[in-house]
Simulated assay, not measured.
Amino acid sequence: MRREDWPERLAMFVAGARSRAFAWGAWDCTTFADGAIEAVTGAARFEDLRGGYDSAAGALAHLRDVLGVPDLPAALDLRLPRRAVPFARRGDLMAFAAGLDALPALGVSTGPLAAVLAAEGITVRPAAEALIAWGVD
């Protein structure tokens, strides 16, 4: 369930993440997605996936070890409902092509745009370019 003040909390979360540099296991798609979920709902859902790796290969191995899934979209599928990209709402998570090390980049919908984690911090992409969306409720 979304908090009453989730729009403000999500905006503060994204603003705070803008200049934070990507770091495997410390500030990556998993921690970014979980932070966005926590801003919207008040509860993290992927604490068990945080840390324990320092590379793309390590992140994938960690997902296999902890959840038995091959990648982060499969992990999100276990805990969040998929939503058709055109029906994604503000605060929903989205996956985009061309992330780091050929992995998808994760973002959070802010309306027609999405805040997407990249090597240099947060970038903005059209939400319509997302490959997958997950509902955050």
Rank of each mutant, 00 (worst) to 15 (best):
F32L: 06
L103N: 01
G16W: 05
R125Y: 09
L80P: 01
F13D: 01
G51M: 09
F96Q: 07
A57Y: 00
D92R: 03
R79V: 11
M1E: 12
E129L: 11
W134M: 09
A119N: 11
R20L: 13
E8V: 10
R90P: 15
A98V: 10
R64I: 09
L93M: 08
G91P: 04
L100V: 14
L103I: 07
G25T: 05
P81D: 12
G42K: 02
T30Q: 15
P7H: 05
E129G: 09
A44S: 15
I37P: 04
L63K: 08
A130P: 03
R50T: 11
L131C: 12
L103P: 02
S109V: 14
R3F: 06
L67W: 13
L10N: 04
D5C: 06
D5K: 01
P73V: 07
L76S: 01
R90D: 13
P104N: 10
A114C: 09
S109D: 10
A59D: 05
E129Q: 12
G35N: 04
A105V: 00
L10T: 08
R9P: 06
T31D: 03
M1G: 15
W27L: 05
D28F: 00
L10R: 01
L93N: 02
V124A: 15
A74H: 03
A74M: 06
A133V: 01
P7R: 07
R3N: 08
G16K: 04
V108S: 01
F96E: 08
R79T: 06
R82Q: 12
G135A: 14
A61C: 10
L49C: 04
A130G: 05
W27A: 05
P70E: 14
L80F: 00
L103W: 00
P126E: 14
R82K: 09
R9L: 11
R20C: 10
G121A: 09
D54H: 10
D137W: 00
R3C: 12
Y53E: 07
A97M: 12
T110S: 13
I132S: 04
A61R: 15
P126M: 11
I132R: 13
A84R: 10
A102R: 15
D34M: 08
R125S: 12
V85M: 10
E120C: 13
V40R: 02
R83D: 04
R83T: 13
A98C: 15
A115Y: 02
F46M: 03
E120N: 14
E38L: 12
A44W: 06
D92H: 08
W27S: 09
V40I: 14
A74L: 05
M12H: 11
F46G: 02
A44C: 13
A56P: 02
S55K: 03
V124F: 07
G68H: 06
D48V: 07
R2V: 05
